[in-house]
Design a protein around this nucleic acid. Structure first.
Length: 795
RNA sequence: GCCCAAGUGGCGGAAUUGGUAUACGCGGCGGACUUAAAAUCCGCUUCCUUUACCGGAUUAUGAGUUCGAGUCUCAUCUUGGGCACCA
């Protein structure tokens, strides 16, 4: 061979890895373990994307790095296959999603293998495989048994195009996360997971996670814990009581009206006959409106119900209104309005001319000059509580109400329970059946999996039921001798991905979801890499982890120790790559152009900090190719020298690359190796140089690195160590500043590096510095040994 | 509107705890090799002035702290992200 031929080299090593299986993880091994994974991909028909390559290459770099350090590494791979794209494709073409999915998986696998990833291929999982979803159903049943999977009828997000309900997390700005159409509200009976049961723990443990702050903050905001009180307002001339949630019970004296959400059940009961028509029309209109429409118009709307509530402290009658600015899903769906100290209530009161009573005095120090002061302060117009500050008054007022049985402290969360039923075919069937009276029963565990039948017509329809409803053989089931009808909804795909990390540790177990011994050896996942799902998936896995820990199936409560959230790769013009724009870069094309997988992988790690988005740059990839070509030449074309001229830079490079990988500085690690190679070209390399280079290169460009190590006759690929004593040259450059400006550089023996007097003397021996000192009066001199710097301050 | 992060050459970006700003790569320019081109190798490349040396300016803008600021503080501008009637 006379030049670097990446495609040949890569084919050779990929074949060898296929045969030797060097990446097989060993259960219960004595070496320290390291379990890492990317968020498993949805295998689309388009095949791998350069975005996948970045994501997978980060995992691979770290996995190989730890493997070279002697860790027992688990680096598995899987496919998240249930979901709408495959089903929509089936509807359009009549092809079974099962078949399309298998073809797509095959393609993904083939492509991933061409990238040379150090994957343990014996552990592949596929969420739509009955062997897998049998255990998804088992997980569901465990939650069902404990009352954490339940049915409830409520207003739900409904996507009119995909004809299915959506979870809150799947609605983005009032639009469906998949098809982008505007979502609607529909009242339906649906399945939920009670994630709110773990709200406090999910919130409290966020701080202890080694995750990006950005993601932690998003999760905290999503959970949205707020502390306050629930208070009861009697309705005048009625037995009804309105419960409201407030974070500011200290402002209760200022509550001059009550507002109910349009969906609130009491609206019908308390509305007086003379305004009934008007109120009903308002509610019907508000409920019909999409969230987008409600939000677009911030102008307050509402109607008076004709009824009055009694303020429990003042005893005054205050009107009860209905308005869509009160949300049925948060708190109790009703509020006490304190227009003097809440901007929304203020706007409403102004519009409808309702009384505004100030009960909090703004402190003099406050520079808040808005029309309604909403911070804390001293109470006024509040009877016996006058003069107290807000915090104290909150305690005292709730105490008093509690005595009277009309109020108590209450914590509310923004997060709702997780809606998990979908009226779609291509998902994991919910293992439930209904008896004659419509009661839900668990499918016995020995009847799992509830298999998804192949059908001809995948289309959902306006009945709100999936295509499974049209499949009579599927519907019939006998449980304990009783004929029942199966649930036709399927599970949200996020359910399938809420436990797959544990299945990786025991992927072929036919008796249980995972063997406790195996899962507790490997999990929690040490490093998890993804570019999406900040609040959805990453919150759900945490929830399931806590639940299964409580059930005794796991001995840890957080599933992911360290999370790397990598940035997207965009088209060269900075826009998102998409088929319709025709700006998609196909990784296989890049490889086959002659660059090879090593160049592609290394380029994607070199392109910029891993957590920032990056634009594809077609010409910059050539630079990485040239670098690898130079590495190849060092091993195969250059006559290696005997002398060890590069000791210092070699040791420094080893240290820097090692430190950088620990810190996820993949781009600077590559840059550092480039510098090393440039230096080797200048000075001439010896065997130790090329050997170290090949070992350092292996996590980035594994095929080339193996080829180089083979040429050198290396017996292993162990990560190189550096010698602390060889990080410094015999001489170093002392920087001499005058008044903070660089004026001279002086070479000084390293032996003098810690001697401040010698450094100062060396600095002042420089001709130019002497000249300056003869013209200016010296005030003082600062010597910094750590950075080899002298700063002389002169007048 | 609220909260957070970030602004460094023509471009992607680097810079330890406050200590040589612009590493590395792209692009550009010049040279070697070649009949020629590609590939490869070598050199130059922040801006201003200068043939060159020297010098000056520079990390969005303006101030401040410091012997010394890309890094810390305050203000302003811009961009990106998150939340958005959550009582």
């Amino acid at each position: 061979m006379s030049h670097y031929e990446p495609l040949k080299i890569e084919e050779k090593w990929q074949k060898r890895w296929e045969e030797d299986k060097p990446f097989a993880a060993k259960d219960n091994d004595k070496r320290p373990k390291m379990f890492m994974a990317e968020m498993f991909p949805y295998p689309s028909g388009a095949g791998l994307h350069v975005g996948h390559v970045r994501n997978f290459s980060i995992v691979d770099c770290v996995a190989r790095f730890y493997a070279q350090q002697g860790f027992n590494v688990l680096r598995p791979f899987g496919y998240d296959t249930f979901g709408l794209p495959a089903e929509n494709y089936a509807i359009k073409t009549g092809t079974a999603p099962q078949d399309v999915t298998l073809a797509n998986i095959e393609n993904f696998r083939k492509q991933a293998k061409r990238l040379g990833y150090a994957i343990d291929w014996s552990r592949e999982i596929n969420t739509s495989d009955p062997e897998y979803y049998k255990w998804t159903q088992w997980c569901f049943l465990q939650l069902f048994k404990k009352g954490l999977a339940y049915q409830a009828e409520s207003y739900q997000w409904w996507c009119p195009v995909d004809q299915t309900v959506l979870a809150n997390e799947q609605v983005e700005n009032g639009h469906c996360w998949r098809c982008g159409c505007e979502v609607e509200k529909k009242k339906m009976k649906q399945w939920f997971f009670r994630i709110t049961a773990y709200a406090d723990e999910l919130l409290d443990e966020i701080d202890s996670l080694d995750w990006p702050e950005k993601i932690k903050t998003m999760q905290k905001n999503w959970i949205g814990r707020s502390e306050g009180a629930e208070l009861k307002f009697k309705v005048k001339d009625s037995k009804e009581v309105i419960e409201v949630f407030t974070t500011r019970p200290d402002t209760l004296y200022g509550a001059t009206f009550v507002v109910l959400a349009p969906e609130h059940p009491l609206v019908k009961k308390i509305t007086s006959d003379d305004v009934r028509k008007k109120v009903e029309a308002y509610c019907a209109d508000a409920i019909k409106k999409s969230e987008i429409e409600r939000q677009e118009n911030k102008e307050k709307t509402g109607v008076f119900t004709g009824a009055y509530a009694i303020n429990p402290l003042t005893g005054k009658e205050i009107p009860i209104w209905v308005s869509d600015y009160v949300l049925i899903g948060y708190g109790t769906g009703a509020i006490m309005a304190v227009p003097a100290h809440d901007e929304r209530d203020f706007a409403f009161a102004e519009k409808f001319d309702l009384p505004i009573i100030k009960v909090i005095e703004k402190p003099e120090s406050s520079d808040d000059d808005s029309a309604c002061y909403h911070d804390e302060g001293e109470l006024v117009n509040s009877g016996e509580f006058n003069g107290m500050d807000s915090a104290q008054a909150r305690e005292k007022i709730v105490e008093k109400l509690e005595k009277d049985g009309i109020g108590h402290k209450k914590v509310t969360y923004r997060m709702r329970d997780w809606l998990i039923s979908r009226q779609r075919y291509w998902g994991c069937p919910i293992p439930i059946a209904y008896d004659k009276d419509g009661n839900a029963h668990a499918i016995p565990e020995d009847q799992l999996p509830v298999k998804l039948p192949k059908v001809d017509d995948y289309k959902p329809d306006s009945t709100g039921r999936s295509a499974l409803a049209k499949c009579p053989e599927f519907l019939k089931v006998t449980i304990d001798g009783e004929e029942m009808t199966r649930e036709t909804d399927t599970l949200d795909g996020y359910a399938c991905s809420s436990w797959y990390l544990w299945r990786y540790t025991d992927p072929h177990n036919k008796k249980m979801a995972w063997d406790p011994e195996k899962v507790n050896y490997w999990a929690p996942t040490d490093i998890y890499v993804g570019a999406d799902h900040a609040v959805a998936h990453l919150l759900y896995v945490r929830f399931w982890c806590k639940f299964f820990a409580d059930e005794g199936y796991l001995n840890f409560r957080e599933p992911v120790k360290k999370l790397l959230y990598n940035g997207y790769i965009n088209a060269p013009d900075g826009k998102k790559m998409s088929k319709s724009k025709g700006n998609v870069i196909d990784p296989l094309d890049v490889i086959d152009q002659g660059y090879g997988a090593d160049t592609l992988r290394t380029y994607e790690l070199f392109i910029g900090p891993y957590d920032q988005k990056a634009n594809w740059n077609t010409s910059a990839i050539g630079g990485v190719y040239r670098f690898l070509n130079r590495c190849w030449s060092l091993a195969f074309e250059t006559k290696l020298e005997k002398a060890d001229k590069n000791k210092v830079i070699r040791n420094r490079t080893i240290k820097k690359v090692t430190d950088d990988i620990y810190d996820n500085g993949f781009n600077t690690a590559v840059a550092c190796m480039m510098e090393f190679v440039n230096e080797l070209y200048k000075n001439g390399a010896n065997e130790a140089d090329v050997d170290a280079l090949a070992r350092l290169l292996k996590p980035f460009a594994p095929h080339l690195a193996c080829e180089m190590l083979e040429k050198l006759g290396a017996k292993d690929d162990v990560w190189p160590n550096y010698d602390e004593s060889l990080l410094e040259d015999e001489e170093f450059e002392l920087i001499v500043q005058v008044n903070g400006k660089l004026r001279a550089r002086v070479m000084v023996p390293t032996a003098d590096a810690e001697d401040k007097d010698k450094l100062e003397a060396a600095a002042k021996s420089d001709e130019k510095i002497k000249q300056i000192l003869s013209d200016h009066e010296e005030i003082k001199t600062i010597v910094i040994t750590r950075t080899h710097l002298v700063n002389i301050v002169v007048k």
